[in-house]
């Protein structure tokens, strides 16, 4: 909390049971940790600069995450709510494109690395 801030937006990414019509049992996340942290810091700094927010915090799990488990949490605080919403949205969208983290989806009948096949 911060007396300068009027709002905090929190995005929580969780594991769904169904994806593209297939039943998921759990997910597994692998990270190139050192580089992932660098890229996440870049995103945080860019979000502060772009949206003028006060603070931002980005967390991502590695290893196995069960159904309904939390894989990622992003929180942003700002004077007015709009900036906090936009910063969180920007941060998760950019994280999905830039941060060297990989998701293996385990299904009832097999598993695959998401976004790996053409």
């Amino acid at each position: 909390m911060d007396e300068k801030c009027g709002g905090i937006d929190i995005f929580v990414g969780t594991v769904r049971r169904w994806n593209k019509g297939k039943e998921v049992t759990h997910l597994f996340f692998e990270a190139y940790v050192a580089m992932a942290i660098r890229e996440m810091e870049k995103i945080a700094l860019a979000a502060i600069e772009k949206y003028g927010i006060e603070k931002i915090s980005i967390h991502h799990r590695t290893g196995q995450v069960e159904l309904e488990g939390i894989a990622v949490i992003i929180a942003a605080s700002s004077k007015h709510r709009k900036a906090a919403f936009e910063a969180c949205s920007y941060a998760i969208d950019t994280l999905k494109n830039e941060v060297p983290i990989w998701k293996k989806e385990f299904l009832v009948d097999g598993s695959y690395w998401v976004n790996s096949r053409p």
């Binding site: 990622v72 994280l95 941060v99 983290i101 990989w102 998701k103 976004n115």
Partner: peptide, 10 residues
Amino acid sequence: IAIIPPVSGG
């Protein structure tokens, strides 16, 4: 050096 397949975090 690292091989970075298409990422899929989040």
